[in-house]
Write a protein that binds this DNA or RNA. Structure first.
Lengths: 130, 130
DNA sequence: CTTGAGCTTCCAGTGACTGGAATCCCCATG
DNA sequence: CATGGGGATTCCAGTCACTGGAAGCTCAAG
């Protein structure tokens, strides 16, 4: 398979696939003309990577997950620990965003949003003084 | 004021303050020795920026917000519209993270996490096939 | 033979900093 | 007066995960 076909089947842009090769996540073969020659196993890996990335795992996490996936002697506890930690970080991120959201929503509600210059949003931003 | 004092009072790292000058968000004066000379108004701006950034506004948004803040003839509707759009994007981000979180939490729950290799998390990652 | 799509590499840019190196300035102590 | 330390300066490089674009090669169709 050429990169275009693999891109379509994996849902990843060709640019991203080349990048993944650059950083050593995949190692496709090459045709005589220099084109990348993807095996089904490469496509499989790319799909794995795409799924992991869509769950928010970092590239380095993906590297570890792929290694675990290919390691028949892995212990599921290793995978679970990685996922658990990632989950914790997602929760932290959500909490941070929710706090932001709360404050911002209050400010937006308080702003009448008309043609006058008076604005509680700007007032809040300027209010953090020492 | 020197940069150290401003950093402490604004809560921003000196590195960040220099960066904000680089990109034109502030324009402190200079002492004869080359040190930056911050006026109270510079500190005020930095506090404004810090607050806006902590609410998740991008640097470009901050630029606009500062301009609006300094424009006596602004209309609060402009500010509100900017904040409203930002709020919408935060909501979208939260929604995305929550979806991730759901899937991931289910997978973590399903994984027994012991010394055996069998693992629903890896199974899920590998399951996205054509 | 030409055209156009698809492939190649390489370089640069994104956002918002952050780390580090090399150098300079100021003040206080011996 | 030398020195030492803390704080300031600039500049370059790195982060993360791509993404855009330029220049050039390959292939299949007409």
């Amino acid at each position: 398979m050429n990169i275009g076909e693999v891109a379509e089947k994996s849902g990843l842009p060709a640019k991203t696939i080349r990048y993944y090769e650059d950083i050593g996540l995949i190692r496709p073969l090459r045709h005589d003309n220099g084109y990348r020659a993807f095996r089904p196993s490469d496509l499989h890996k790319l799909a794995f990577l795409g799924r992991a990335r869509s769950l928010g795992f970092s590239i380095e996490d993906c590297r570890v997950l792929m290694a675990l996936y290919e390691d028949e002697t892995r212990e599921s506890a290793q995978v679970k620990a990685l996922a658990q930690e990632h989950l914790t970080q997602i929760d932290a991120k959500i909490a941070g965003l929710r706090a932001m959201r709360e404050t911002l929503a209050d400010l937006v509600d308080a702003c009448h949003g008309d043609s006058r210059p008076d604005c509680p949003i700007l007032k809040d931003l300027a209010s953090v003084v020492k």
